[in-house]
């Protein structure tokens, strides 16, 4: 008897699909030496300043990743946030842990970002720029900006 509900947009599924299949960082040509891998233990972040850009270098289990240190919400230093896992969108009552050690939580308001893809895991559109990090044979880290 009641009218058909409108179709849900399920924006979280869009966000997690992007995290699941992360795009490569935008192609950039300027190479900047940013130290050595031995300085950053797994699960930690080092923040580097390159001109006007502040960038966080993260050492994850999966390798080295870089995120702009600027939350799209109110401009907090995002990369100073804590590193966590999260839960994938799931059936009701189910907790499905995902991305352990791959999520940075903004220190100001706790919004979640996937470090690998830069995707905000709370809506379909927000993201933080990501940068390519190359690791040399002796652990030299090179950031492409």
């Amino acid at each position: 008897m009641s009218a058909e509900p409108e179709k849900p947009c399920q924006s979280l599924l869009v966000a997690f699909a992007e995290a699941e299949a992360p795009k490569s960082p935008k192609r950039r040509d300027k190479e900047v030496a940013v130290g050595n891998a031995s300085e950053i233990p797994v699960g930690k972040c080092k923040i580097v300043q390159i001109g006007h850009l502040s960038i966080g270098l993260f050492h994850l289990e999966e390798g080295f990743y870089a995120l702009r240190n600027d939350c799209p919400h109110q401009g907090a230093e995002l990369c100073k946030g804590s590193i966590h896992g999260t839960h994938r969108p799931s059936d009701v009552t189910v907790f499905d842990p995902a991305y352990k050690g791959r999520i940075v939580r903004c220190p100001w308001h706790g919004w979640e970002f996937d470090i690998v893809s830069g995707k905000g895991l709370y809506n379909a559109k927000d993201r933080v720029p990501t940068y390519e990090v190359r690791v040399g044979p002796d652990g030299e880290l090179t950031l492409l900006v």
Binding site: C9, Q10, S11, L13, T86, H87, V92, N123
Partner: peptide
């Protein structure tokens, strides 16, 4: 919800 979504992961939209 933007900060605490992972505590109610069954919600798939705002």
């Amino acid at each position: 919800f933007k900060a605490l979504r992972s505590t109610v992961p069954w919600l798939k939209e705002r």
